[in-house]
Structure formats: structure tokens, C-alpha cells
Amino acid sequence: MKILIIIIQVAVLTAIAPLISGIIRKIKNNIRMRRGTSVFQPYYNLAKLFAKNEVVSENASWIFRVTPFVVIASAIFALSLVPLVNAGNNVNYAGDILLIMFTLMLGRFFLALSGLDTGSAFGGMGSSREMFISSLVEPAMMISIFVVAANASSTNQYLIAARGHVSFSAIVAGIALLMVTIAETSRIPVDNQETHLELTMIHEAMVLEYSGRSLALIELASHIKQIVFFTILANVIFPIGAGLAVYVVKILMISAMIGVIEISIAKMRLFRAVDFLTFSLVLSMAALVISAAGL
């Protein structure tokens, strides 16, 4: 039964993960008074990539070939651990919320390695920046999660999701985690998914050498990672209400928020992004103090 729930959850969320990206893009375009592409565009992109041949650099080693599978495996595994609508229904089978964070790190580690693997300067630059941003994100993410976990006295994501109330500290931690989410999903102001300009790209530079099926897997993994973070925000940080409908509403709200943030802020240069992340760290520390005070 447990396994069935998990499989359904993974299948459904994997299926709708690209849709979320499409919706965010649509929201951004609508605010900019453009018609924009269909919300299903990410699916078309994936289908196109899956059908294409791959070009692999002659310098690349087996790391480059294995990476897409490691990345997708870590993303799907993380997805199988997040609590979906069945809050309170503990179907945890392998680990707690910390494991989700560490698992995402696994995928990123391999992506960064394959960025270096082809010997292209772009790839190296991308992996350097990606590791830089992600390592600075870690403390804020860890402390925010610790805060909400402390409110539930457990790091089991299902128990955190089942705590039923949102304290003041959880709200502050949630804002910090939203900033972390922006950085982790390569969005403005930290990174920009839509550009291939050498000076600014981080994530895109790292996966520049990938093509065809491998690139499709990596992109799918990015969509999944995004929905993992959104779900953590929606169900773990703000566990208000239950049921699929509430979940969908919450995810849409988060998407809208991200979209609005993306079009209202300019992308920061790399070392300004540090300030952005420092701010999220400060917020999470504030949440920690508030939570220690019992609010």
C-alpha cells in the first residue's frame, strides 16, 4: 500500500513537473503583456530532445554519460520522499527531510563534475558558480528546515507536515526558504534560465555540452527539483488545509509569486547574489531565534 502511494505520487508529480515551469513562464509573459508560448511548451521541448541524437565530446569520460541518470535518480528519489496530499499519513520509507537536501546535493555534485568533464571553459565556469551558489545556500536552507522541524520536534517530513499550525517562526523560515528556492531553481535574481549569455549563465553553462536524450533527462530533473522545493514550501512549511485541491492552489500561488519576483527584479551579478543569499541566512537565523523563544 505504502509503495503504491509512493509510486502514484512520483508518477503524478513527475508528470506535472514541467507544467509548473510552463505556468510560471505563462504568468511572466502575461504580466509583460505578451501572449507567450503555451503552458505545455516544456513538454514539447522534452519530447523534441528525447527524439534527438546526442553529441558527446571526445574529451568526455564515463562521468559525463552517467550524470543524467544520477541526476534524474536523485531528483525522483527526492520527489518520492516529499509529503504530497497525504499529510499525516506517514509513508516515509527511507529518510527524513535532511535526506532530501543531501540527495539533491548528489545530483548537483555530478552535474558540476560533468561540467568540467568536457574541457570547455563554459562548463567549468558553470560548475564553479553552481557550486559556489549552492554551498552558500546550504546554511540558510538547513536552518530554516531545522526551525520548522523544531516546531514539530521531528525532522520527519510527514510529522512536520502534520503539525497543523503555522507559527510565526515558520513564516519567517518560509520566506528564507523561498529565497533559497529561487537560488536553487536557477531563477532571477540569482540565475536566469532563459539566457545563454556567457557572463550571466550559471546552470545553463554547466549543462551546455549536453544534448538529446541526456539533456532531456537533466531538464526533466530540473523541473522535478523545482516541484520538490515547491512542495516542501507548500506542505512542510505551510501545512494549512488538506486535500489535492488545496495543494494545487498552494503550488499555483507559489508559482505566481516566483513569476512576479522574477519579472520585478533584475538579475544580480554573481557577487551581489551573495548578499541576496546572506539575507536569506539572516532571515533564517531570525526564524531560529524566534522559534527558540517559542513563537
Partner: peptide, 20 residues
């Protein structure tokens, strides 16, 4: 809590270092 943050930062930096 702060120590957990330190440990997380250390882990992130260590990962970056070993990618290098």
C-alpha cells in the same frame, strides 16, 4: 541551530572543493 548551519555550509563548501 547555528552549528547546524555551520555544518551545512561546511558540507556545501566541501562538495565544491571536491568537485574541483
Amino acid at each position: 541551530g547555528a552549528l547546524a548551519g555551520v555544518l551545512a555550509l561546511t558540507g556545501g563548501l566541501a562538495a565544491a572543493c571536491f568537485v574541483k
